[in-house]
Amino acid sequence: MSVDVAQTREIISGLKWYFQAKNLALKNAISIKFPLSVDQQNDIRVFYSLYLANLLSTTEMLLEKEYLFSQEFKQDLDAAFSFPNFPDGKNNYSYLRELRNAVIHRGFDISSSAHINDGMPLMIAPPINRKSER
């Protein structure tokens, strides 16, 4: 297996950008405390949407077939998304993809229901019925 320097730079550059954007979105989202103004309600929706978009862009970039390690990454991802009460890592990751798709492509308002804990709104993830393939 030879290392493609240009591809390695592309991966590092992409990962750096996605993580910077994801981290900024999350930092801004968790800084918003209850009670929320109308503007804050909109902001929190935007921040969590950006978080999901960039988080999944990171993983999907690493799953692209032209990368030599994509199959190994897919196996590691499935293992990382396996939990005691929800052991199907592939299905759990698919849920996250569909949640992102609902938020980004179909306009689902992730902030439409939440629990409040110490003034912080904690979003309630809905059931998703659509299935996606990867």
Rank of each mutant, 00 (worst) to 15 (best):
L15K: 03
L56S: 07
L56E: 04
L63I: 01
S111Q: 03
E66H: 15
K74F: 09
A21I: 13
I44W: 02
L26G: 00
P35S: 03
P127N: 07
S70F: 07
K74S: 07
Y93T: 03
S13K: 07
N129W: 11
L56K: 10
E64T: 11
K65Y: 12
I124F: 03
Q20I: 12
K27F: 06
T59D: 11
N91M: 15
S112A: 12
F47V: 02
S13W: 03
N54F: 15
S111V: 09
E60H: 04
N23W: 08
V103P: 01
V46H: 05
M61I: 12
S82I: 01
L96G: 01
E98R: 13
H105L: 05
G107P: 04
E60R: 08
K74G: 03
N101P: 06
G89K: 00
G107C: 02
E66V: 15
E64S: 13
E60D: 14
S37R: 10
A53S: 14
H105K: 11
R9P: 06
I30K: 09
I11H: 08
I30W: 06
N54C: 07
A29I: 00
I30M: 01
R9V: 10
L96Q: 05
Y51L: 12
A102N: 06
S31N: 15
P126Y: 05
L122C: 10
